[in-house]
Amino acid sequence: MNNTVFIRSKISIFTISLVRLLSLLPFILVGIYLNTFKINNINLFAFLKPLTYAFVGLIIGVLVNLIFTKKNKKDKLSDILFSSFHIEYGVILGCLMSPSVSLITFSITLLILFIISKLIDIKINVMALSFIIIYLITKYTTSFNLVERIATSDKDYLIGNITGSLLSTGFISYLIALFILRVNSSSKTDISIYASITFAILTLIASFFTNESFYELVFINSYLFIFLYVASDSISSSYTLKGVKVYGILIGIITFSLMLITPILAPFIAILITSLFSTVIDKLSNKFLKKKLT
């Protein structure tokens, strides 16, 4: 065998991002319906606002990629625009934003953080870090409640009948998106699954000891969405077959532990911490589990 390459698969950052962005459609479509049409007192701005964050996030991602990518004549437009995952990060963060967040705060903070992430090569979850910073800026500069959750029954959580951002759309949308990602052999869906299951088991146990509803603990604050899209970021997460499972379980455990202290930031802090140790998790889980088997 020699070193020349003649044929390659069609998988690229563009195709990976495209699948992830398309899998957001169930969330976006159901979110628009439940958060706008079903609510009384809507106007056009209120209808478009949740979608605007996703669109602004997309534009910022495109801008950052265009500025920082070295362009060759042979490169296609999709290769330049999707030279990194920043478009995906921008759209997902847009979906995570509550309509209470100032659009200007969101745009400027995101742009600065994306530029810094391009300049400094640190293996860290950019989405988690960006959300934490935007949340803290918004919390300490405004007096709004960032998330409003109104649910009338447990069923509402399953179908996402709660107000908030676009992603407040529940378990069914999560399952559809998970199916789309799994079928397209997205290798990091194991992280989402293990994080979700670990978190669900811990909250189920907790719900027996507290008066809290299991559905409220699991589905509030869109933890499942965050596990599905933010935790499974390709660059910052573990990549080995055993590592992704351990990575997901750790995220589930840390999220549960932080949930009572800071319910909104819990999953993001959990993801940020585990992303810092993703290489170590890969190394140790493969070493330890290999020894156990032998």
Binding site: V5, F6, I11, F85, S187, S234, I235, Y239, L241
Partner: peptide
């Protein structure tokens, strides 16, 4: 066959090579 002349990019840590 012609060879693939596209330049290598930075690893995105997807794990597909291992998978």
């Amino acid at each position: 066959n012609t060879k693939d002349t596209r330049k290598e990019k930075k690893c995105i840590n997807c794990g597909l090579c291992m998978f």
